[in-house]
């Protein structure tokens, strides 16, 4: 990859999945080849009205900074990048639900990041390790960039990204909790994180196991308890979101060493989070699920690690 690739397009565009998949060759997945930028751009559709928020340069800078900062610990890039990506690519959920935007991000704007972040360990000497295709073109909770944007969106508390940063610092939250329908209810998402923070403060071992157990407990209990009634929350203030998006025109680049501010679309009432934390902690303590899992992990011997580097 030492020849200069064609220039990065200035604005984001929408890349249809069919066209994206076609160029997902083995060479691209291993990082040996660059995706054909010119062909991909030709296959893309314009994103609509021109706006600063769709500029590629700020995103590109972030991605490069992430690769520099976390060269030795790439999983840790998630917690750093998620809130900053969210505050740079300002958009509504309806816009973020378009897979074509994410296809363009991964194949045209930053394929090098996808390979850097998601290429698995070398397993054999003959074949080169590849990044899984669904990190380039895939569902939101798998896609290299969509998962970070959505994690920031689902786990932030109004303008406060601290909870999202904490969530993305745990790979199991990103793996398991992000695909849980239950977290669509904001107090549930924050209560889940609070329970984990409490467990982490007690220095429990195998925190990842707790995440997985909690996720299934929350799901099971949800079939008989209506969290929305136990822990009410106002709908998000959509005007505040639109205002925050409009501010992207004049906003400076996001800070690299402190957290940016998200949209002021309303905080989740603490009473609601507390009510759910109480329920989740009780269920979790009584969970046979966890005991069984903990037992299997212990029996499996010292070779088992719950950290999943590179996945």
């Amino acid at each position: 990859m030492n020849r200069t690739p064609p220039a990065l397009p200035e604005v984001l565009a929408l890349l249809p999945t069919t066209a994206a998949t076609q160029h997902l060759t083995r060479g691209v997945l291993t990082g040996q080849e660059d995706p054909p930028r010119v062909a991909l751009q030709r296959a893309s559709k314009p994103i609509g009205a021109s706006a600063a928020r769709w500029h590629t340069a700020p995103v590109r800078e972030l991605v490069e900074e992430a690769m520099r900062r976390f060269a030795d610990a790439r999983t840790r890039a998630d917690a750093w990048l998620a809130p900053r990506l969210h505050a740079t690519l300002r958009m509504t959920r309806a816009e973020a639900a378009d897979p074509e935007l994410w296809n363009f991000m991964s194949l045209v704007v930053a394929p090098d990041y996808v390979v850097w972040r998601h290429t698995g360990a070398v397993t054999s000497t003959t074949s080169r390790p590849t990044a899984p295709a669904d990190r380039f073109v895939g569902v939101a909770h798998k896609h290299a960039f969509a998962r970070l944007w959505w994690a920031a969106e689902m786990f932030r508390d109004g303008e406060d990204y601290r909870s999202a940063e904490f969530a993305c610092g745990n790979q199991d939250v990103l793996h398991t909790a992000l695909r849980l329908n239950a977290i669509d209810h904001r107090p549930t998402a924050l209560a889940l994180l609070q329970v984990l923070a409490n467990l982490a403060a007690r220095k429990v071992s195998h925190l990842g196991d707790h995440v997985n157990a909690l996720a299934s407990e929350i799901n099971i209990v949800r079939s008989t308890l209506m969290y929305d009634v136990i822990a009410p929350v106002e709908p998000p203030d959509t005007d505040a979101v639109l205002e925050w998006i409009a501010e992207a025109e004049t906003a400076p680049p996001v800070p690299l060493n402190s957290l940016p501010d998200g949209p002021r679309d309303g905080r989740v009432p603490k009473t609601s989070v507390d009510a759910l934390v109480k329920i989740f902690e009780k269920v979790h303590e009584e969970s046979p699920h966890l005991r069984r899992r903990a037992a299997t992990v212990d029996n499996a011997g010292a070779g088992v690690s719950l950290a999943k580097p590179g996945i």
Binding site: R93, A94, W150, M154, H185, V229, T238
Partner: peptide, 29 residues
């Protein structure tokens, strides 16, 4: 869009439960 919005309904004197739910263009696709 991972959207979830719960609105309580109120009970009218005739026994029916009524209310309204907003559908925002920003939250739905």
């Amino acid at each position: 869009t991972n959207a979830r919005l719960a609105r309580p309904l109120r009970k009218r004197t005739d026994g029916a439960w009524v209310g309204s739910v907003p559908v925002s263009r920003t939250l739905h696709r």
